[in-house]
């Protein structure tokens, strides 16, 4: 009997010793696989990003959660007297468009189409004022039954520059991040203002005592600095009022610095740990 139990222990011991490297890297690898090429575009003159948060939308069905976010970005890659090429980003999804142009007195009248293959896409009709660097117009969905039938917008050109030192405004120190299942509010703490995960390499001690909500916000702020257009409704809602935030890309992975990648990995670990352990019978 003693021997049997002893052997059980020995076997467990050897199993424990046998573990070596495993899938630490697979997760990162997947993210790298998903990345697309860097899209830094020419922002001179009329080229660049046009953005506003006073977009007006006319939905076909009034109850639609996507209406919570009103951010719309139009990127003008190329425009001349005859044609235009660009991209629009809304709610974390992007679509290229091409179209025809008529120019009169410094005002481009643009009629442009997004790919018809996706019935969530639509057709643009807008004026681009070369001098004021503004865009006014409308977007109409191809699908008359889609949730968002029409968007009216007024956009202003915003020069996008990446600034690793910029951080969230002070009001984020006590902003509501969301509500848990029992209805209690999840609040951010002032850590989210002081911890910048883009310009400092964080250590375990910097993040180990943070709430999950703070961790998530600090990590996502890295992406926000690069102009990431979040699909997450929560992040769109939170960042809507941030004056430096311009969503310009749906994939910024290639632009992340080495510090940022390391910090994202570290923070993500503590987020997962908090998610699985914090309110449970566990360490």
């Amino acid at each position: 009997m003693k021997k049997i139990i002893f052997y059980i222990f020995v076997v467990i011991f050897f199993i424990a010793c046998n573990n070596k490297k495993n899938n630490t890297e697979t997760e990162n690898q997947q993210e790298i696989d998903a990345e697309i090429t860097t899209n830094t575009i020419n922002q001179d003159g009329v080229y660049g990003y046009y953005f506003a948060d006073n977009t007006i939308r006319i939905p076909s069905q009034s109850e639609d959660e996507d209406l919570d976010s009103k951010n719309l970005t139009i990127a003008i890659y190329e425009i001349n007297d005859k044609m235009v090429a660009g991209q629009r980003i809304i709610n974390g999804s992007a679509s290229d468009f091409v179209g025809t142009v008529t120019k009169e007195n410094g005002i481009y009248l643009v009629e442009a189409d997004e790919p018809k293959s996706d019935n969530k896409n639509g057709r643009f009709l807008f004026y681009l004022n070369e001098k004021e660097r503004t865009i006014k117009g409308e977007w109409v969905a191809y699908d008359a039954n889609s949730n968002v039938k029409k968007i009216l917008f007024e956009l202003k050109k915003e020069k996008f520059t990446y600034n690793k030192d910029i951080n969230l405004d002070e009001y984020f120190g006590f902003t509501t991040l969301g509500y848990s299942s029992d209805g209690t509010a999840e609040m951010a703490t002032e850590s989210v203002i002081y911890i910048n995960a883009s310009n400092v390499l964080l250590e375990a001690n910097d993040v180990s005592n943070l709430y999950k909500g703070d961790l998530e916000l600090i990590r996502n702020t890295i992406f926000a600095r690069h102009g990431f257009a979040f699909q997450s409704r929560k992040m769109r809602f939170l960042l809507e009022g941030v004056n430096w935030y311009v969503p310009i890309s749906t994939d910024v992975y290639a632009k992340l610095t080495a510090i940022e990648k390391k910090n994202i990995d570290l923070i993500k670990r503590y987020e997962e740990y908090a998610e699985r352990n914090y309110q449970f019978f566990a360490r």
Partner: peptide
């Protein structure tokens, strides 16, 4: 199975 990157060990990678 033995996993050095599971559960609690996720935050003990150092």
């Amino acid at each position: 199975p033995i996993n050095t990157d599971a559960a609690f060990l996720r935050i003990k990678q150092e």
